[in-house]
């Protein structure tokens, strides 16, 4: 058996050892990715809210201005 094959075989414990490390990788990646995605979405939602709010305040002043003009 080559050194590399021996390394992957883990002395016959491959499913247990690699399974443990795979679980760790999945949990670590998920717990980094999910909060980052949530943060990005939240920032976008707040940005959209802000635009909507500024559009709402801009519209009435425009209309009032129109009414007052001849």
């Amino acid at each position: 058996m080559s050194a590399l094959a021996a390394f992957f075989a883990m002395g016959g414990y491959a499913p247990y050892v690699w399974g443990s490390y795979a679980l760790a990788v999945i949990i670590f990646i998920y717990n980094a990715w999910a909060p980052l995605r949530r943060h990005a979405r939240l920032r976008r939602a707040i940005l959209a809210d802000g635009r909507r709010a500024s559009a709402a305040t801009a519209a009435p002043t425009h209309r009032i201005h129109d009414e007052n003009s001849p």
């Binding site: 883990m10 002395g11 016959g12 247990y16 050892v17 443990s20 679980l23 760790a24």
Partner: peptide
């Protein structure tokens, strides 16, 4: 424990 003990490096820190 042979190679199986390598689980320790994930198990103990977690």
């Amino acid at each position: 424990q042979g190679e199986a003990y390598r689980i320790l490096f994930v198990h103990v820190p977690s």
